[in-house]
Simulated assay, not measured.
Amino acid sequence: MSALLEGKVAIVTGSGQGIGRDVALCMARHGAMIVTNNRKPGSSLDAYEKTRIEFTDEEREAIESVTGDAQTTADQILRDGGRAVPFFGDVGDFATAGRMIDTAVDNFGRVDIIVNNASSNWSGSILDMDEELWDISVTSKLKGAFNLMHHALPQMKEQGFGRILNSSSDAFLGLEGLAAYSAANAGIVALSKAAAEDLRGTGITVNAYTPLAKTRSWMNAAATYRLRGVSSEAIDAGAPDAMKRTPEGMVPFLAYLASDEAAAISGRLFRLTADGEIGVWSSPEVIRHIMADDGVWTIDTLRDRVPGELLSELDIARSTIATT
């Protein structure tokens, strides 16, 4: 490959399988030393916590082909001639995240790049969600990102260099059946933008990205649709092209963002798809407003002006945004 990340040390959370695995392999091929991570040895076929799906033999074989853990990813990097060590532990635990940073420093002398990719999820209506199910999504994704950032930032600031890449999802717009996951990913976007502003001038950049590719989660979703009576033809036709391709082709962009060459890029939210798209998300903006006379609203005025002016010609159904 190249020496783009030569001498850099990267931690990639949730890198036992899926997009995280491909990010770790890609950065290693560009010269980075890698700490791979997932919660514990081994992996499950089930992408959704506290959920059990009855897979067909074909589905099971396909999912098994993309599963792995921190050790298997580290082993692959070593076979490719790179340097890597595995770390098993839950990034959602503050002290564990600190030990992950220590592992990078103890083995490689520094930490330059954090890829907050780890995520746990539960699928279902908010009517059925309890505190534990909420915490499953929010702790691993949002608190986990903060934990790694908190422990890594002092060293990054001292060395005058750092790259933080936070994985979000287009679920940050609000996705039916994934309320906690959507909230966690919206939090990632805000955290990344705010941290980028706090860290300007330090040599540390913070960016977020929304990836779309064929992963274990998509295979689980497809199996769920099948169990609901949706035909395989309909599932295939309804899936975006990016969901039919594995992620290795899109992850070089993250290696680029982690390099010296991307020093001026910070506070951005990018869209990455496995069929070749790289996009930049816009920031939200007020698209219509109304003003009260003398700054005071009455209920009678609101009854007239909200539907008649504020929401006129807007598709109210868009208040519930469903994305794939």
Rank of each mutant, 00 (worst) to 15 (best):
242 A>F: 01
303 R>S: 09
120 S>D: 08
306 V>T: 07
219 M>F: 07
81 G>N: 07
162 G>T: 07
323 T>D: 00
117 N>Q: 11
19 I>G: 03
312 S>P: 00
172 F>W: 10
240 P>V: 09
117 N>H: 13
188 I>C: 02
158 E>M: 06
197 E>H: 06
204 I>A: 06
265 I>R: 00
6 E>K: 15
108 F>C: 09
90 D>H: 13
267 G>V: 09
302 L>K: 03
107 N>I: 05
86 P>F: 04
172 F>N: 04
112 D>G: 07
229 G>T: 12
188 I>V: 11
184 A>M: 07
143 K>H: 09
248 E>Q: 15
283 S>L: 14
93 D>N: 15
313 E>F: 11
190 A>I: 01
2 S>F: 11
228 R>K: 13
258 A>G: 11
164 I>Y: 04
93 D>C: 10
147 N>M: 13
21 R>P: 02
14 G>S: 14
53 I>S: 06
21 R>S: 05
138 V>T: 10
293 D>L: 13
165 L>T: 10
278 I>W: 04
311 L>H: 02
2 S>N: 13
157 K>R: 11
318 R>F: 07
52 R>V: 12
36 T>D: 05
258 A>M: 04
32 A>N: 02
322 A>I: 14
39 R>P: 01
55 F>M: 05
65 S>W: 02
285 E>M: 12
79 R>E: 15
3 A>G: 15
203 G>H: 06
197 E>F: 08
79 R>K: 15
204 I>D: 02
259 S>H: 09
161 F>Y: 15
96 T>L: 07
105 V>R: 06
188 I>Y: 04
123 S>C: 05
70 A>N: 08
54 E>Y: 06
42 G>E: 07
152 A>H: 07
221 A>R: 05
293 D>M: 13
98 G>W: 05
74 A>F: 00
102 D>H: 03
89 G>A: 10
46 D>I: 07
298 T>H: 13
151 H>A: 14
23 V>D: 06
258 A>P: 10
241 D>K: 14
194 A>D: 03
226 R>Y: 08
12 V>L: 10
278 I>R: 11
189 V>Y: 03
249 G>W: 01
106 D>K: 14
136 I>R: 01
289 H>D: 10
26 C>A: 11
126 I>Q: 05
279 G>Y: 07
6 E>L: 15
1 M>V: 10
